[in-house]
Design a protein around this nucleic acid. Structure first.
Lengths: 208, 208
DNA sequence: CCTACCGATCGGTAGG
DNA sequence: CCTACCGATCGGTAGG
């Protein structure tokens, strides 16, 4: 009976929110993103995760259903942020070239501020299980098409060079994912300088 | 005794080279690269590999020492090709901007022709074991520094814009890794067009 | 080349 | 929240 009482209290603790409204589950997802980024989804074990959270592995399952739930929470969260942003930018009444710059700056800032989630969703989405895998693939394809659409609009209006739009999208998105190394190297360059450099190179190119 | 005879013949077969001088081990490494690219190093099991090679899992170990050997053969092969190429280009007596373009074209062609190895070394090198891990990290850092050095040379000689060289390197290398999606989508664009588009965007930028 | 098998580790559950 | 434990799967070995 005393043991039952303890387990009851402990199970309640899982549902208590701190004053910042951050639940235990949120903490687990955050630590999971860090671990998945560091070791990869498959190589990161639930025992690893339990250790950084500070509990036994079995206890994690009072807050989450499975390891794969952690991945799809991370991936779908990122996908939704991207979709919401392009919704907003597309509806604005500004030149295509400005839309592209806005989208680039959004991606750059995401990579600077929420880079763990973004890197995980970028690199580990293949390990999603259905139906989340198909859903993610769908959102991603749609996003890239819409991005390419904006570039094509800019080409038609002679705001930007005549290049293959899907190729340009790939270059942009992947170039920005390179910011990960910026985090690793703790370089002297500031986040603001990094952002300006990236936009300059991508929009204006290297050539003088 | 008959069984011993069979096993003796079979073990010999492992060392026989075909007329193209491709050994059994080469085939295993090639299939491993494909598998590692598709599922990731950790998620790809030796039983998966055995199946695509067409033998039992245990038989693989007549040709290789371990799973990790497969990864470091792939990664070091790519690293050496990169190092050899920058050795060559650095020693040429041409403007820095041309050196950069040559390096870019080399990377683009690598991603078009040997993309499985390149992607695996890019994405899975973290799973290397020592001393290969340190070695790879070292080669990689050196390569990026030399690449940045060429860009800085170009800036000094006013051949290219004044931007942060390490950032430019990150953008270039990551942008090119985006070609992976080109393979997946079987797009209408040709390899040659892809190459020209990428060089145009990276050297001259999007802006008209 | 195969069959047979090993110890380690995995994600996850039962029960309190 | 924990302890105890399960079946599945892993990389790899022994032996012929």
């Amino acid at each position: 009976m005393p043991l039952t009482f303890v387990s009851y209290i402990c199970s309640l603790m899982g549902r208590i929110k701190t004053e910042n409204n951050i639940s235990r589950k949120d903490i687990i997802v955050e630590k999971a993103a860090n671990l998945f980024k560091e070791k990869g989804y498959k190589a990161a074990s639930m025992r690893d995760l339990a250790e950084v959270v500070g509990v036994e592995a079995a206890s994690l399952y009072n807050h989450i259903k499975s390891k794969s739930e952690l991945l799809h929470v991370i991936c779908l969260d990122v996908a939704n942020r991207f979709t919401n942003t392009i919704d907003e930018i597309e509806s604005e009444n500004i030149p295509a070239r400005e839309k592209i710059e806005k989208l680039l700056r959004f991606h750059i800032l995401e990579m600077i501020n929420n880079y763990e989630d973004v890197i995980v969703s970028d690199r580990e989405w293949k390990h999603l299980s259905e139906p989340y895998l198909s859903n993610f693939r769908h959102q991603r394809r749609l996003y890239r098409r819409r991005f390419a659409g904006i570039i094509e609009e800019g080409i038609k209006k002679k705001e930007i060079k005549k290049i293959d739009a899907p190729t340009a999208v790939l270059i942009m998105l992947h170039a920005i994912s390179g910011i990960e190394s910026f985090h690793r190297s703790k370089q002297k360059i500031s986040a603001k300088d990094l952002e300006e450099n990236m936009v300059t190179i991508l929009i204006n190119g290297l050539a003088k």
